[in-house]
């Protein structure tokens, strides 16, 4: 996985933004890295949006409860499912990146990747079903 490096590692290839996301001829490791970065950017944007939305709570029960009823519409639930994918992928791939970057399980990186991303996918499917059915 030569492309997946701690962001600050000197060995990491430096390239333009477009090149990071160019899938052709790329290994699973590059795709794993690009997806980690993409989900990271999405989560960061969501974090700020989330804080803004939470300001509805300061407007009292009407403000918040009317937001909650909009948030239960199918479009919002679908956005929730997309968000859930971003969270579980970034979280479980992030565990691998953090462990390997700290020198833990260096030699078992491939197994770690498939194992953790496998858990992420199972949690994603269970979570997505719950979002639509609960």
């Amino acid at each position: 996985m030569p492309d997946i490096q701690p962001t600050t590692d000197k060995a990491r290839p430096k390239s333009s933004l477009k090149a990071w996301f160019h899938p052709r001829g790329r290994s699973i490791s590059t795709i794993a890295f690009a997806l980690n970065r993409l989900t990271a950017i999405g989560l960061t944007l969501y974090l700020f949006l989330h804080l803004v939305v939470l300001s509805q709570l300061l407007r009292g029960p009407e403000g918040w409860n009317s937001f909650v009823s909009i948030a239960k519409s199918p479009i919002f639930l679908t956005l929730d499912v997309i968000l859930l994918f971003g969270v579980v992928y970034h979280m479980f791939n992030g565990i691998r990146v953090a462990l390997v970057g700290m020198g833990v399980a260096n030699q078992r990186q491939k197994g770690l990747f498939y194992g953790l991303v496998g858990i992420a996918l199972i949690l994603f499917v269970v979570g997505a079903v719950l979002i639509y059915t609960k």
Binding site: M1, I4, D9, S27, S29, V100, M102, G103, Q109, K110
Partner: peptide, 20 residues
């Protein structure tokens, strides 16, 4: 994903206690 995928070992980490 071969051995080149491995990143810094703890020794390398210790050797690079720079800001980044």
């Amino acid at each position: 994903m071969d051995s080149t995928m491995s990143r810094r070992s703890p020794e390398q980490m210790a050797a690079r206690r720079d800001r980044s």
